[in-house]
Amino acid sequence: MLRVVGGTEHGGRDADVAIIIPARYGSTRFPGKPLVELRGAEGSAKSLLQRSWETACLVSGAGEVWIATDDVRIQEAAARFGASVVLTPTDCLNGTERCCAAVVAAGLKADLIINFQGDAPLTPPLAVDALIETMREDPTIGVGTVMVRSSSVEADCLRTDERVGRFRMTSVVFDRRLNALYFSKRVIPHVGARMDRPPVYLHLEVYGYRRETLLAYRDLEPSEFEQAEGLEQLRFLDAGIPVRMVEVGAPPGGIWEVNSPSDVVAVEAALTERHID
């Protein structure tokens, strides 16, 4: 049974934009990840979920922020720090499917839905605002997402990690209209021994969807490439739905997600560098 708790809008914000934070307890690589505690610059311990929610609440262009989960432990934790929560089915395959379920369960009427990752508290709110503004300016965009241009040093570090089987970020290539051509957990484009290496763009996993485009996702079959890469956005490309890329500047401390216990140290270091307690 689907249940909704809360639903409070942010006063003075755009009611036509809603943020949803998908949060799953049963992560294969890091069970219970949303509730792991991260220490801030002054030593305050807050869960990964709360830190992601607090960051999402700083997005000026959003009218409401929801947490969508399939686990009562996450629901109860979110309610304790004042978040609006919607319980969604356990069989959602990814965050986009969970956002679909949340829109229906919570009865959200917003035209623009933002999928804000619950394991990425370092996502800059200004980057989300840039995504919202881009989609407001061009109503033909059904799906949008954000990228940053990596430095050559960072790209080389990612290639080194790749050689030992560690894939920390998703990269993207796109056409001249800024529509994505492909996403991969490997570093693309492949450059081999070329000296004039093209830039590598890293995907920040925050998405904007038109409501009707998001709800259409439920009826699309998972694509072969989506299943091979483990990247939900490839389902849109497989169906011929363009994904518009929005470039933003890289923030201090880098963009780190919490995908495994070893990532906690890097995220805490970035919180300190940004003076976030």
Results as ranks from 00 to 15, higher is better:
residue 4 V to Q: 04
residue 12 G to C: 08
residue 14 D to F: 10
residue 17 V to H: 01
residue 21 I to Q: 00
residue 25 Y to N: 10
residue 25 Y to S: 12
residue 26 G to Q: 15
residue 26 G to H: 14
residue 28 T to D: 13
residue 33 K to T: 04
residue 37 E to S: 12
residue 40 G to H: 06
residue 41 A to T: 03
residue 43 G to M: 07
residue 43 G to W: 04
residue 46 K to L: 13
residue 46 K to W: 09
residue 47 S to P: 02
residue 51 R to I: 05
residue 53 W to M: 06
residue 53 W to K: 00
residue 54 E to F: 02
residue 55 T to L: 01
residue 56 A to F: 08
residue 60 S to V: 12
residue 60 S to A: 15
residue 61 G to F: 02
residue 63 G to I: 08
residue 65 V to A: 10
residue 71 D to Q: 10
residue 72 V to L: 15
residue 77 A to T: 10
residue 77 A to E: 15
residue 82 G to H: 08
residue 83 A to Y: 03
residue 84 S to T: 09
residue 84 S to Y: 07
residue 87 L to D: 09
residue 87 L to R: 10
residue 89 P to F: 07
residue 89 P to I: 06
residue 90 T to F: 10
residue 91 D to R: 08
residue 91 D to V: 01
residue 92 C to F: 04
residue 92 C to A: 13
residue 94 N to P: 01
residue 96 T to A: 13
residue 99 C to M: 07
residue 99 C to G: 01
residue 103 V to T: 02
residue 107 G to Q: 03
residue 119 D to F: 03
residue 120 A to W: 01
residue 121 P to L: 05
residue 122 L to R: 05
residue 123 T to M: 15
residue 123 T to D: 02
residue 124 P to M: 07
residue 126 L to V: 14
residue 127 A to R: 05
residue 132 I to N: 02
residue 134 T to F: 02
residue 136 R to D: 07
residue 136 R to P: 00
residue 144 G to N: 08
residue 144 G to C: 06
residue 146 V to R: 00
residue 147 M to R: 14
residue 147 M to K: 12
residue 149 R to Y: 03
residue 154 E to D: 14
residue 154 E to V: 11
residue 155 A to D: 01
residue 161 D to C: 12
residue 162 E to S: 12
residue 162 E to K: 08
residue 163 R to T: 12
residue 166 R to L: 14
residue 167 F to G: 03
residue 167 F to K: 12
residue 170 T to G: 04
residue 171 S to P: 04
residue 175 D to W: 04
residue 177 R to F: 15
residue 178 L to P: 00
residue 178 L to Q: 15
residue 181 L to P: 00
residue 184 S to P: 04
residue 186 R to F: 09
residue 187 V to W: 01
residue 189 P to L: 06
residue 190 H to P: 02
residue 192 G to H: 09
residue 192 G to S: 11
residue 194 R to P: 01
residue 196 D to N: 12
residue 197 R to T: 10
residue 199 P to Y: 05
residue 201 Y to N: 11
residue 207 Y to F: 15
residue 209 Y to C: 06
residue 212 E to Y: 07
residue 213 T to L: 02
residue 214 L to S: 00
residue 215 L to W: 07
residue 215 L to D: 01
residue 217 Y to H: 04
residue 218 R to Q: 11
residue 220 L to C: 00
residue 221 E to D: 14
residue 222 P to A: 01
residue 223 S to K: 01
residue 225 F to H: 11
residue 227 Q to N: 09
residue 229 E to M: 07
residue 233 Q to E: 11
residue 234 L to M: 13
residue 235 R to L: 00
residue 236 F to C: 07
residue 236 F to G: 00
residue 237 L to E: 03
residue 242 P to C: 05
residue 242 P to A: 08
residue 246 V to I: 15
residue 247 E to K: 13
residue 251 P to K: 08
residue 251 P to D: 08
residue 251 P to F: 05
residue 253 G to I: 05
residue 256 W to R: 13
residue 257 E to T: 13
residue 264 V to K: 09
residue 265 V to G: 08
residue 266 A to S: 15
residue 266 A to G: 06
residue 268 E to C: 03
residue 268 E to K: 03
residue 269 A to T: 09
residue 270 A to H: 08
residue 270 A to M: 07
residue 274 R to T: 05
residue 275 H to K: 15
residue 276 I to S: 00
residue 276 I to K: 03
residue 277 D to Y: 04
